[in-house]
């Protein structure tokens, strides 16, 4: 690992909560890694806001497409953490 820490699932849960709130009926603390963001109640604007918060907190720049094309928490974690790796490798 370089200077950037890793974005973990608990981090993502917290940021989703702050950025976009949680619907009743969504158990954000459950097994959500491979669930569709849509099924979790998050639309593209919710993901944009989530991405902006990740950027601020971790001091990175993420492409809007990279964020909104991630369909699941696992995909989002992967794309964000790949960005960290790229920055640290550079």
């Amino acid at each position: 690992m370089g200077d950037h820490e890793e974005l973990t699932l608990p981090d993502l849960r917290r940021i989703l909560r702050e950025a976009a709130g949680v619907n009743e009926g969504t158990d954000l603390d459950g097994e959500i890694l491979d669930l569709d963001f849509e099924d979790l109640g998050y639309d593209s604007l919710a993901l944009l806001e989530t991405g902006a918060r990740i950027e601020r907190e971790y001091g990175v720049r993420l492409e809007d497409d990279a964020i909104t094309s991630a369909r699941t928490p696992r995909a989002l974690l992967t794309v964000v953490n790949l960005t960290f790796t790229d920055i640290d490798a550079a």
Binding site: G21, V22, N23, G41, L45, E49
Partner: peptide, 8 residues
């Protein structure tokens, strides 16, 4: 209101 509506 549902939690999703609060931040927006």
């Amino acid at each position: 209101l549902p939690g999703r509506l609060i931040p927006q």
